[in-house]
Design a protein around this nucleic acid. Structure first.
Length: 494
DNA sequence: CGTGCCGGGGT
DNA sequence: ACCCCGGCACG
């Protein structure tokens, strides 16, 4: 099964430079294998042991060359990526819109891809791309390198080339047989870029475990060795991955799954499969682990900062904008996979710095709502509770928060029948406003997850006798609920 | 030290 | 949401 798949896809990979390689088949094979293991993938190649695999990458990396190859597919023209870039903007919009909202796959899906960014730069230069790969498994490189050279040196006859669309050219990273120093540099660069989305990477899929395992070993080793200096990210490439089915460990995650499935199922299905795969594999578990985390997909293409909430979306974006294929076009190579990375975004942080990420994707909208709520409460207690950091809130809120809200809120605080009466009267605001505080604080806490300003300022004690004093411990049942719960007294506000 | 109540935790 | 409490600030 794999073989089949591989073959088909392989063709694509080969295409790359325009120079064909016999390698294709191999590469493809490698690829498939690797896929399950790791998306980014050079590793897999190692696993297979097929030098070819490495070659494959190279092509991809070539970027420029790849592009050329791509051109056949759908590229309008010229320098692959660059041309794509031009298109980009236009496409982008569409793409974004078109992009699904599903975060689905995210978890499983794409971990990290090599950064497309490289590709463009690399364009003409195979080496750069290659370098990347090299880093990972130096050993193979040599082999590959040889092959590669041979290939390069002698272009295969056109006949040999297979026009087949590269279902998975994706591997952005390239290895270069030669030029170690350069390679390293490149690798570093790549890593850096990748590091951006360390968390995401792992979304390991349990399912994957079995298959990828084989592959994973190989690459792992390679990685460990190669990575030495540039361990920028938290890549979870650790040994743990295999053993731990859980979430984070296996770097393989998405792609692996994807590929895996694909390979097993049908050749063509590509996209569909991919999509479906996501669903299948999407592990709720991993995601959940961090409630505040949201998975986003970031386009790694050179100047593209596009961030989308959906893997499919980002893929489409890449396909359309960067790869120059029509978004609607039926076929997707999976090439896109390599040009985007999954990143986890802390929702909390989002709320604070929405500006950075949010804007990019429409989907992101979610978090914002938080503000309004928080704001609502604020107006009331502003002077008192908010003293320190939150002072700004009032302003913002003022607009949105009608006085009404305040009073309503108050009620909740601790609804004793009595309390209601008291609280309700908005007028109650007193200078010291300890009572007010209570309400406010509460609301604040509930509503705003964000860092609280509360800390230092503890409201001064109210003068009024509280339930405790009024009723005494004996009649505790008489106390307002708040007092009973050791909360700010609702009944006797100051 | 008693009190008020915040911040958390449990259900 | 309701209920409890640990613990801290304040007086």
């Amino acid at each position: 099964m794999d073989a089949k798949r591989v073959l088909d896809k392989s063709s694509v990979g080969i295409r790359v430079g325009g120079a064909d390689f016999n390698y294709r088949a191999d590469c493809s094979v490698v690829r498939d294998t690797r896929v399950p293991t790791v998306d980014s993938g050079p590793m897999p190649a190692c696993m297979n042991g097929a030098a070819l695999g490495s070659v494959l990458y190279t092509y991809v990396m070539d970027g420029g060359s790849v592009v050329d190859g791509a051109s056949e597919k759908s590229f309008p023209k010229g320098n692959g990526p660059s041309s794509g870039g031009g298109i980009l903007h236009d496409m982008e919009k569409t793409g974004s819109g078109g992009l699904g909202d599903q975060r689905d796959t995210g978890s499983t899906g794409v971990l990290k891809r090599a950064s497309p960014t490289h590709c463009p730069s690399i364009n003409g230069q195979l080496p750069g791309g290659l370098m990347h790969l090299d880093i990972r498994n130096p050993g193979k490189q040599a082999e590959l390198a040889d092959c590669f050279r041979a290939v390069q040196g002698q272009n295969l006859p056109p006949a040999e080339r297979q026009p087949l669309p590269s279902s998975h050219i994706p591997v952005p990273r390239n290895r270069k047989p030669s030029g170690h120093a350069d390679k390293e540099v490149m690798a570093a660069t790549v890593l850096t870029s990748l590091s951006t989305s360390p968390l995401v990477l792992h979304p390991a899929s349990t399912t994957t475990a079995a298959v990828p395992e084989l592959a994973s070993r190989g690459w792992k080793e390679a990685l460990s060795a190669s990575y030495s200096s540039s361990t920028s990210g938290n890549w979870s490439w650790d040994a743990s991955d295999q053993s731990v089915p859980s979430t984070p460990s296996p770097p393989l995650s998405n792609d692996a799954n994807k590929n895996f499935l694909l390979s097993s199922q049908g050749d063509d299905v590509n996209e569909d499969v991919t999509e479906s795969t996501h669903f299948l594999f999407e592990d709720p578990i991993p995601r959940k682990r961090k409630n505040s985390m949201k998975v986003m997909f970031k386009c790694l293409w050179k100047n593209c900062e596009k961030v989308l909430s959906t893997s499919s979306g980002i893929q489409r974006h890449i396909r359309a904008v960067h790869l120059g294929r029509n978004s609607d076009s039926d076929h997707s190579d999976g090439e896109e996979d390599f040009y985007y990375s999954e990143i986890e975004v802390n929702v909390d942080s989002l709320s604070e710095g929405l500006s950075s990420l949010t804007p990019t994707s429409p989907t992101t909208a979610g978090p914002p709502p938080v503000f309004p709520l928080a704001l609502t409460d604020v107006p009331r207690s502003e002077h008192i509770s908010m003293n320190g950091s939150q002072s700004h809130f009032p302003t913002l809120l003022s607009q949105s928060a009608p006085s009404t809200l305040c009073h309503i809120r108050t009620d909740h605080a601790y609804q004793g029948p009595v309390a209601h009466v008291r609280t309700v009267s908005i007028g109650e605001k007193r200078q010291p406003a300890p009572s007010t505080h209570t309400t406010v604080n509460k609301n604040h806490a509930l509503i705003t997850p964000a860092p609280k300003p509360t800390q230092g300022t503890r409201k001064p004690r109210g003068e009024a006798k509280k339930c405790r004093k009024v009723y005494g411990m004996e009649k505790r049942d008489m106390w307002c609920t708040a007092c009973r719960w050791k909360k700010a007294c609702q009944r006797f506000t100051d």
